[in-house]
Amino acid sequence: MIGMGKIIRKHVKTGLLIAAVLFVLLANTGIACAEPVPARPFENIYVFDYAGLIDDADEQQMRKIAELLEEKSKAQLIVVTINDLAQMEIEDYALELFRNWGIGDKEKNNGLLILVNKESLLENRRGRIRIEVGYGLEGAINDGKAGAILDTYALPAFELGEYSRGIRDTFMVAAAEVAKEYGLDLEDENFAHLKDYPVEDEEVSLLALLPIIIVVVIFLITIRKTGGPRGYHRGPFTGTFFGSGHSRGGGFGGGSTGGGGASR
């Protein structure tokens, strides 16, 4: 009888252990299933051409500029091409990817994502491309400018089927705007060719945009004060899991976005 009791107790222990392990595993898979966007890469190589749309030469060129920009300003410009949106809207997909990867510096939130979706691109319909702008770069590239960049540089090239050029040009203009924002000298030989990408002047007068600017400023002040969305809203992956916030060379910074940018 005593032996029986022991055995049962032993089994209860093992059972509990198995249950605990199962629980942990299930909890993890639960999170994994909820993320249709690509997992956060361990190394940040700036251009992630999952859909194979970009030529090698363009890829190298973008990578070089992105590296320089990060080095000088901590801003992270990332290009991602994907085969399809996994039934999501391009806005939602971009937001999820941006936050899961943590693009941009954690404090400055100065990330920018250019997301290209091959499926819509080939079918020539909405959802082809999105520029998603982190909080910290909304001053450099507001929604109107993001839209204008796409209209001027991405769409005309896409119409001709020159996807790689469209993506490269879009990236270069965005890079030029970011460089300007941080006062990086375009005369510098490293950035010199960014000057070939002028952005059309704003057609809307500054006065008309004043209310928006004020709201953005208030918004930025509130998030700075409360530490609100930065610390709070990021998914379980950034921060805790990957220990972002510690500066690790070649990784992502843990930046966030509020959904700014434009899509076509």
């Binding site: 806005e91 507001n142 204008a148």
Partner: peptide, 23 residues
């Protein structure tokens, strides 16, 4: 051009509203 810019601003703002609502 004015209209395009404003509609981009609107689309961006709607997207921000959706995002902040989700948060």
């Amino acid at each position: 051009a004015n209209f395009r810019q404003l509609s981009d601003e609107l689309a961006g703002t709607e997207n921000r509203i959706a995002t902040s609502r989700m948060d």
